[in-house]
Amino acid sequence: MVILKTQSQIEKMAKAGKILATCHKELAKRIAPGVTTLEIDRFVENFLEKHECTAEQKGYMGYPFATCASVNDVICHGFPARRPLKNGDLVTIDMVVNHKGWLADSAWTYEVGTVTPEVHRLIQVTKEALYIGIEKAVIGNRLGDIGYAIQSYAEAQGFAVVRDYTGHGIGQKMHESPTVLHYGEPGKGLRLKEGMVITIEPMINAGTYKAKVDADGWTVRTVDGSLSAQFEHTIAITSEGPMILTKQ
């Protein structure tokens, strides 16, 4: 069941989203060759604690960290690690912030040092695909309109859209209905209504869209070793258009 949010509830989620966005801005200053994703994870947890927030995914189904840190061919759910980031890497940091019981979710892919033009283009196209999807998040449209817009753009640029991992509703729980696909057909799927709050979070691969899961049961990689990028915002459907609650 889709839980529609009141204006007051959306405002509470926006407070969580503002703190999350500020944390990402701070990360952008810190991510560099030689930094470990475990150091990044500890920074995030400390930052959230100072802002009266908690990391919602820590402990979720046994997940042990405050962030997901996905490097290069890791699509999502990567474990923070002691391995230093290298010049030319890309890394996606995904976090869900709980502020006084209300949640916001956002992932961002960062360039580490100086990356190749191919890496830069993958990151830029993925970011653009997110905003193209957000443009379709208006009252009266359907979820398929969002997925179709993302898929059409990404594939036209020569990239592939991950199928197995999706966006979702969010509120006081991390994962609510509906499921938000990043591919699909226009005019299909659930109709968007005022008060819906969802995540749009396309994961775009340089190679095939297919994924595999590591032995740890969490880390998701491209099957062909190709690079993957992701950008995610939490979005409220309003009478004035899509409201980005995690806007940087």
Rank of each mutant, 00 (worst) to 15 (best):
M1D: 10
I3R: 15
K12C: 03
A16I: 08
G17S: 09
L20E: 12
A21G: 10
T22R: 14
T22S: 13
K25T: 14
R30E: 11
A32D: 04
T36Y: 10
D41Y: 11
N46L: 12
F47I: 05
T54V: 15
A55M: 13
A66R: 12
A66H: 09
S70T: 11
V74I: 15
C76Y: 15
C76I: 15
H77T: 07
G78T: 12
R82D: 11
N87C: 04
G88H: 12
L90F: 11
I93K: 01
D105E: 07
D105Q: 04
W108V: 14
W108L: 12
Y110V: 05
E111C: 03
V115I: 11
T116P: 01
P117G: 02
R121W: 14
I123Q: 00
T126R: 00
E128W: 12
E128M: 11
G133Y: 07
I134N: 04
V138F: 07
I139M: 06
R142P: 02
G144C: 03
I146D: 01
I146W: 06
I146G: 00
F159G: 04
F159A: 06
A160N: 13
R163S: 05
H168R: 11
G169D: 03
M174I: 15
V180S: 02
Y183N: 03
K188S: 11
E201Q: 04
P202E: 04
D216C: 06
D216L: 04
G217E: 10
T219N: 12
V220A: 09
R221T: 13
V223S: 02
G225C: 10
E232D: 07
E232C: 14
H233N: 15
T234K: 08
I237V: 10
I237S: 02
T238F: 00
G241D: 05
G241C: 05
K247F: 09
Q248H: 14
